[in-house]
Structures are given as structure tokens and as C-alpha cells.
Design a binder for these strands. Structure first.
Lengths: 355, 355
DNA sequence: TTGTACGCGTTATCAC
DNA sequence: GTGATAACGCGTACAA
């Protein structure tokens, strides 16, 4: 079968047929020996294994995939333009997910979903072309063009970070609302009465949740919405750092200056804190700052930045568990929403309100 | 063919045969109409396209791949534990590469290469199992187990960031040595005469190059190696931030204190700069700092951190071009080494030497 | 220009 | 326990 077997040097990939011939058995026996080792005589099995090793045999994934009608590739859909806060955590997420997947024999393919139709089409081709077996979505929207969507391809989907459970997509999220609420409550406890909220894209799930969390804390603390000023929130994508910079302008224009700032991503907080200090405000003397994400770099800001740390590794593992569960049909609807709590890390960017 | 065609609702994937039947042509004609539109009558072609659209037909990638003996997936091998400085730039690299690949009809699969044999085996199965068509390697070593390596699988490989051209792997790198040399020269020009170099893993390509660059600048400036102290350089992996923290200890223990610090990654510089200021040293008053990578966050450090910016997007594009060139055999050996220059970004962390 | 027939490498179904 | 054989969905000689 292998026409190059006599060349010896750069032999092209060994086939199952080559292994069978070398081991002196039928090709189907080789297949079994590799897939169901129990259902084949031990003696022949070892002979087959030896032959396979000698030839450096590796099963052809596409042939197998075609035959069994399944691939073993999972696709993760990343936001095309780095999502306003997520770029810091993407590597951790990918690594966590990939590690979990590999243990179960799956591969990870990545796709970027931006505003161009071409990228949506590409993703859908992956989904409908049988290339992928399941989807982890890390973006705020599902790709859809010509009425086709990954769900329509019959693919299991799990959403990470964004709660899409009301769209029927099992989601692994953190407790955005409670986490921000608790952080705000802590600020109130420290005597703060006026706040600046640096928003993510308006309407975005995270922004909705986090904004609500701030309001809940204000309400519980006996403060009205008037205590809250808002910056950012543009619909258009913007780099987190830029949002923070603009927030400095907004801040300095306010008649009554807030004493505490709640940023919805570390990037925003980092650029804001840097520029606001250049503008002559002391942190935390004049101004306390807390943000969301938990990037490692926050510890080394000046002053060290308080942040709400998202457990991205755990969330990655949970998303994989959910997805593989759906694939194996172990669970059909699963728990639709899995919440993994974030943790407030208090650092020196937060202090008592100026009296 | 499609047994579910009468269900209408959740129809399983339409096949080429379905399209052929609906268009009233033979299955092979459909195949041609999609692949070589020129070689089929316009009238029938439009009929076929209409049928395909109506059925939501998407070609099965595995069947095609099996038939043509090629996949259209590229694998990128990432360092399993975040490489000492690279974690900041991985998202940009992935996005740049993915974008370039999609335009040419390829997909991107990711693999992590850490110290465990399982991950090497996984990568090699991908390579030998026909799953991938080419490899972009972002790690300092090539996976190899049982004497198998991706090159042995006949796969085109391109290395990014690391120069592996002497191992026969076309590489896209930046001018580490010159960039560091120029930065060091600038420090010398500013009157600095003693330096601390915060090293990456000893023996690592980047560290070798960058260290050499420092020495070249010292030599050109009439300084001896005695002008240089070294911190870091552990063989074991360590988080960049930790290396910077340890460098603070090393620095304070030196009898003659350097007035300038050259860090081989932004992470190191960021944690070092933060802690050294807490220890009572002024930047750049007592100490100038420059680092390597060009993370956006450097601009918002206190003081803003000078850094050598690597053109990661360009490097990603170049790597893809090289790889696809090798796949298409347009170029056989290609230029073995492509250098894309980095750019020194001067910020306030650098100043004249204390007199 | 279009249709027929075969094969890509593997797994699953059946006999033996 | 093992072997022959028919698919999986598509591309491509070749014949019509």
C-alpha cells in the first residue's frame, strides 16, 4: 500500500494497512486493537502495537472523522477586536481550556468574530462543515448569516463570561453584579458618597450587570442615583486604555468631584489612575479606585490597584466540562447557568474618603 | 440521501448529493461548480448555487480533506507555561495570524507545549495524523518524542520570535541584539556607567541575543563587562513579575549601585520598577529603566516605562506568508531568516545619570 | 459541458 | 477472536 516503503528515508505516513501487513493480520483487526484493545487476543495485540510503533503509525484523523461522523475539535470564538477588558485574560483562558480539552482527547481551534461578515461566514463554515464538534463562545454575540447559526448546525455551545442562558446557551459566568456591589459597599463603608463609574459598551451584558450592582449598593447604603456619575459606555468598540483616558476628562469636568471610581476593566482603571495622578489628584488620598478583571499587573501599579479577580482558569474548566457533557449527552440541558464567584482583592488604591 | 429532508425542521446537514438532486444534475457537476466555476455552464451553475443556498449546503471539510490528502488547518505551538515575557503579546499574535490565515482559507489550531510528554505527543499526533498542514512555532523548542518531529511529518514549519534558522527552520524574528544595543547606547549617552541586566532564562535565544547586545554597546562605549551586573537568568521557568521582584533584592545588595536597568521583558521591568520605588529609589532620578516587548500598559506605568516595541502584527503576517509560501511550494527554502526591526519607545523611565 | 466510477483511510457490520 | 466488506462525503480521472 505504501508506495514509499522501499525508499526507507522519507517514507510518507504509514497506513493502517501497512501495520496490518507487518503484523500479519487483517486491517480490521488493527483497527480494533487500537480502539477496543479488550476485544482482541493479547498476543496479536502486542504484535500489532509493535508493528505500529516500528512504522511510526499515526491514525489519520480526517479519515476517522469522516467515518464516525464526528470531529474531535472544539472551536472557541474570541472577540475580534480585543474586547474592552478581556485581552488581558485571553491567554489564561486559552491555556486553561486547551489543557482541559487535551485531557479528553480534543483539539482547540480558534476563531475571531469581528464586525466583518467574512469572519462570521468562516465560523459558520467551520460549524456546518463538520470541522468542529462543539463551540465555546467568548463573545457577546452569536455569529449568524443567511439565517445560519452554530446552534442550527446542531452543535453544543457554551458561553463563557457572558450570560446567554436566556438565549438557551448554557453559560459559565462570574457574579459580576454581586462582586461590584460588594466592592461598592466597601467604598461606602469607607465613607465615600460620590462615585464615578467607567462603563463598558452600553448594553453589554457585563456593563448591565455591573452597573446594576453599583446601584444596588447605593440603594442599600441609602444613596440615590445622583451619587453616581458615568463615563465611557460608547457603543463603538474602544480600547480599554482609551476609555480610561477619556474618563479623566469627564472627571475633571464634574462640578462635584467623586471620591471613588469604579472601573469595569483593569485597562480602564490603569490608564485612568495614571493620568488622574498626573492631573494632580492623589490616589487614594483624593480618590479611591477599584476595577474588574484581576490582571496580575494590577499588583504593580502605583499605587497597587484594587481589582475584582475573575477565576478564569476555573471558568475555563467549567466551560469545557459543560461542553463535553453536552457532547456526550451525559446531560441534556445541564444547569443552564454556572456562576463562579470573583474575589475582591483590596490594595492601596482604595482608602477612606477625604473628610 | 438525506433521510431527514422530509422533516424540514432540524434537517441534518445537506449533502452534495442533495444539492445535485435539487438542481437536477450529477453530483460531480456540483463539485465542479463549487471548485472550478469556470468549467461549468453558467446556467447550470446558477441553478446549482441556488440549490446549495436553499439547502444551506456547506461542504464537509473532513471528506474533502481526506480526498485531497490535505487539511487546511495551521497549528500554532504556544509555550505551555506563559513564556517569561510573551504572555502580554500572545493575543495580538494570535489575532494577527488568524486574520492572515482566514484570508487564505486556512484555520488556526492552537497547541500548548509544556514540559509534559503528553502535550508533545498530542502535538505530534496532530502533525502525523494529517490534521494540520503547517506549523507556526512560538516556543523555544521543537516537540520530539520517539524520534518523531513535525519536520519528520513533512510539514512546513516557521518559527516566530525565536531564530531557529540554524536548525533549518525559517524564522521570523526581531532584531533583539541591535535593539538592545541601541537602547544601551542611549543610556550610555545619558551618562550611565553601571548597569543591571535582568535576564530571561539562561541559554534562551532571546537572552543570548539581548545580552550580547548589551555587551556590544558597552564595548563600543569603552566600558568593560564589569560595568554590568546580572539578575534573573534561572533555567527554570518563572513568571516575569517574580523575576523583577527578585531583581530588586539583587539590586539592593550590590556594593556599587547601577544607575540603569535593562530588563528583557516588560513584566520584569514593571514589577521591578514598582518595588524599587517602594524601596526608596527614584525613577529616573536614581535609576533609569528600559525593557523589551512594548506592551501597551507600559505607557501607564509610573513613571511611563521605556520599552522596545516588537512589531508582533507584522511578524505574524510575515510568518503566515512564509508558511503558506512553503506550502504552495512557491518558495522552497525561502529566505531562512526574516528580521523585522523593533522600535525603542522612549518614555520618562529613562533620564540622565545621577551626577 | 456533463455523468460514471473509483478511491482517499478509517470504522462498523457482518460472517466465519 | 479474526477477516472480508461496505460505507462516510467528496474530488477527479475518464468516458460520453
Amino acid at each position: 500500500m505504501n508506495k514509499n516503503k522501499d525508499v526507507g528515508e522519507e517514507q510518507s505516513a504509514a497506513l493502517m494497512a501497512d501495520v496490518a501487513r507487518l503484523a500479519g493480520v487483517a486491517i480490521s483487526t488493527v483497527s480494533r486493537a487500537l480502539a477496543n484493545p479488550g476485544r482482541v487476543n493479547e498476543k496479536t495485540r502486542t504484535r500489532i502495537n509493535a508493528a505500529a510503533k516500528q512504522l511510526g503509525y499515526t491514525p489519520n484523523a480526517m479519515a476517522r472523522g469522516l467515518r464516525v461522523g464526528k470531529s474531535n475539535t472544539i472551536m472557541i470564538i474570541l472577540p475580534g477586536s480585543p474586547y474592552y477588558g478581556a485581552s488581558q485574560i485571553i491567554p489564561q483562558v486559552l491555556q486553561s481550556i486547551n489543557k482541559s480539552l487535551i485531557q479528553e482527547g480534543y483539539n482547540l481551534m480558534i476563531a475571531n468574530l469581528d464586525r466583518e461578515e467574512a469572519s462570521e461566514r468562516h465560523i459558520l463554515n467551520l460549524a456546518f462543515g463538520g470541522t468542529v464538534r462543539g463551540v465555546i463562545i467568548f463573545s457577546s454575540k452569536l455569529p449568524e448569516v443567511d439565517g445560519r447559526s452554530p446552534a442550527g448546525a446542531g452543535l453544543p455551545i457554551v458561553s463563557m463570561l457572558f450570560d446567554m442562558s436566556n438565549a438557551g446557551v448554557p453559560s459559565v459566568v462570574t457574579n459580576d453584579r454581586e462582586a461590584i456591589r460588594d466592592a461598592t459597599t466597601e467604598l461606602i463603608r469607607l465613607g465615600h458618597r460620590r462615585f464615578l463609574y467607567i462603563a463598558g459598551p452600553r448594553g453589554n451584558y457585563h456593563d448591565v450587570e455591573r452597573y446594576a450592582g453599583v446601584l444596588e449598593a447605593l440603594g442599600a447604603g441609602g444613596l440615590s442615583e445622583d451619587a453616581l456619575s458615568i463615563s465611557g459606555g460608547d457603543l463603538e468598540y474602544q480600547h480599554g486604555f482609551e476609555t480610561g483616558i477619556r474618563a479623566v476628562d469627564d472627571f475633571t469636568k464634574l462640578d462635584v468631584r467623586p471620591t471613588a471610581v469604579i472601573a469595569t476593566s483593569d485597562d480602564m482603571a490603569i490608564s485612568f489612575m495614571s493620568r488622574i495622578q498626573h492631573a494632580g489628584f492623589a490616589v487614594p488620598g483624593d480618590l479611591s479606585i477599584v476595577s474588574f478583571d484581576g490582571s496580575p499587573v494590577c499588583e504593580f501599579c502605583s499605587p497597587p490597584l484594587s481589582t475584582i479577580k475573575q477565576p478564569v482558569e476555573e471558568m475555563g474548566r467549567a466551560a469545557v466540562d459543560l461542553l463535553l457533557g453536552a457532547i456526550d449527552q451525559r446531560q441534556e440541558a445541564a444547569k443552564v447557568r454556572t456562576v463562579i464567584p470573583s474575589k475582591l482583592i483590596l490594595r492601596e488604591s482604595i482608602g477612606s474618603a477625604k473628610s
